[in-house]
Design a protein around this nucleic acid. Structure first.
Lengths: 354, 354
DNA sequence: CTGAAAGCGCTAACAT
DNA sequence: ATGTTAGCGCTTTCAG
């Protein structure tokens, strides 16, 4: 761990026979110091391997120019898209980003929050983990006036600013689409209904069924997590149903893909036997066969919107308190996995509206 | 941005009528301060919402207990596995992790390096971007004695510690496997040969061909990036070959999956017409049809090994300088995409060895 | 067991 | 255009 002595502005000042104030100013290109001295400063700094001390600076300035983001998982197309959107905006605005992920654990999420709090991020962006029940670990930020924005997985009840898609509508659309294809028994594979996104999608699903006079029964609802095992289990569940469902709305593309594979292995033809709609528009949907009908969830846009709002607040351009909810566009992408070949049915159904 | 006044140890000390030194000691549970005062300190700290100041502390202590990691992309199964491995080890050891990603750009990589340097990470882990040509941006770390370990995408020529798999062997194995399946014209779809991993795999491919008396020609080599477009282009390239290749070794599972889809769309049967081997063992490989034969690249293990070595060095348990190269196990996973049905050929080939 | 005090490197108000 | 100086909040000798 032998780290040789750091060179500081004192060293530069001594060497150049000027004051540390001038060095400090020169280093940040303050127009008030002469071109000549600035040049000398930069050259010497370079030569001596000077690096400015983040800590001294932050200690002095009392803010960090850093924003933190807590996500539930890195291993997801959607999340990495969000991240890239956030990053574009934050780096443009000269902010650093610290990425933390909770691995879907409320405990880790709280630890991350605490850590970012101590690191004194100027603002926080978060999407809740699977099993997060309350928002206590965000209290310190709010108490201290550090702005927090939630996206995707949020607590709708609180009065924090949230950025979401219309999960209810998406659930409704996805289900309605299956109904239009002639499905009369639609399974719903999803994750914990405690999380707003899944609860809303479920609600949309239920309402679409109801509005179309399709009966619902509890055993059509399959709640698991987002793992490969979940996909296999869901398929097994469906295979046991008598009669088989003729459609499935699965709220995650990866799970949908695994599920489809398992169904196919068991002789089910998709979409003829079971039509499938996923969620997120992950890359995998276009790779599997048949290609997966899904809801396009524009992560990058969402990331940009979240970050832009946070930074505007930080810069005093707008107040976060004025905005409670921002809804980002999303839409159904129809591919092969859901298209049944029964135009006759479609015609007969065409009176339905909205 | 109204942030109310932070409470400091001075506030606590004043309130409790003790010195800041005692508060400081108490806060870090120093055995030298009495249980009673400690308790009073903790309670008051809690009550007043005290949070310790990272910056003041780091400024004083001159090290950060933070390690940085620079990766080329987040959006990859392999990378997120590595990250989870690294994270497990670093958090166990009480270090913070700062994740930065370069989006395959040398420029962003350099910016990230500079940033982490200024943030004074105690150690650095990195996998090089696509177009990184030299390691100049890591110079400052090395000059300052901040340990740096490279993994996966590395510079083999330098004398930094590197953690890799045996890419040459993997390339050889993958190609040999195709040859065993009876392939006589094997295309190689890969990325920039400037990057060690691709160069080594290519070398393995060439040697396997040579050792098995299979001719190579330049047009079998398709160099692109790791995008969807690359996969489509690669497929188009192969379709134009006369005669068609009967095998393809593609150094990335996602690209392989896209490529297979495009080939299938053009009437090619896999593996009968063209047998395919991918690389990485991403989740997608098990989802597509036929399932993808690939090289298992154990990211999590790699992450753990990298982090463990770095931390051992930081803690003085071992010296990084003693280890130049660490090779992590990897192996071929045979699935449907490469298995041709011609046992006759296999028998005739069984004299081959090594 | 507790306190006093120096100093980590930097910024910014106030001089000059 | 440059210099002086007072902290930012904390850790850590050294003294009691």
């Amino acid at each position: 761990m032998s780290r040789q002595k750091e060179v500081t502005i004192y060293d530069l000042a001594r060497e150049l026979n000027i004051s540390i104030a001038t060095v400090s100013r020169g280093l940040k290109d303050d127009p008030v110091v002469s071109k000549k001295t600035k040049k000398r400063i930069f050259q010497l700094a370079e030569r001596m391997g000077y690096r400015y001390n983040h800590f001294a600076r932050n200690l002095r300035k009392q803010h960090t120019n850093t924003i933190g983001i807590i996500v539930h998982e890195l291993n997801s197309n959607f999340i990495t898209s969000v991240l890239s959107g956030v990053e574009r905006v934050t780096t443009d605005a000269g902010y650093d980003l610290i990425i933390a992920h909770s691995s879907e654990s409320a405990k880790k999420e709280a630890a991350n929050a605490k850590n970012l709090f101590h690191k004194r991020v100027d603002g926080l962006i978060a999407s809740l983990s699977f099993d997060t029940r309350d928002l206590e670990h965000f209290r310190p930020f709010i108490d201290r006036g550090v702005p927090v924005i939630f996206f995707d997985r949020v607590d709708e009840a609180g009065d924090n600013t949230i950025v979401v898609i219309d999960n209810y509508k998406c659930g409704y659309q996805a289900t309605e689409h299956l109904i239009h294809q002639g499905c009369k028994k639609i399974a719903h594979v999803t994750a914990s209904l405690n999380r707003n996104v899944y609860a809303q999608r479920y609600k949309g699903y239920r309402d679409a069924l109801f509005d179309n006079d399709i009966p619902f029964s509890e055993d059509l609802l399959i709640v698991r997590d987002l793992s490969e095992a979940a996909g296999i289990e869901a398929a097994m569940c469906m295979l046991k149903m008598k009669p088989l469902p003729d459609g499935a709305f699965i709220t995650n593309d990866f799970v949908a893909a695994v599920c489809m594979r398992t169904l196919k292995e068991n002789g089910i033809v998709i979409p003829d036997d079971i039509a499938v709609v996923g969620f997120n528009n992950d890359a995998v949907g276009k790779l599997i066969e048949p290609a997966l009908t899904t809801i396009n969830y524009p992560g990058r846009d969402m990331g940009e919107i979240v970050a832009r709002n946070l930074i505007n607040h930080l810069q005093g351009i707008s107040k976060l308190e004025q905005t409670k909810t921002i809804i980002v566009n999303s839409n159904l992408i129809v591919r092969k996995s859901s298209q049944k070949n029964n135009p006759g049915f479609l015609k007969q159904k065409s009176t339905r509206n909205k």
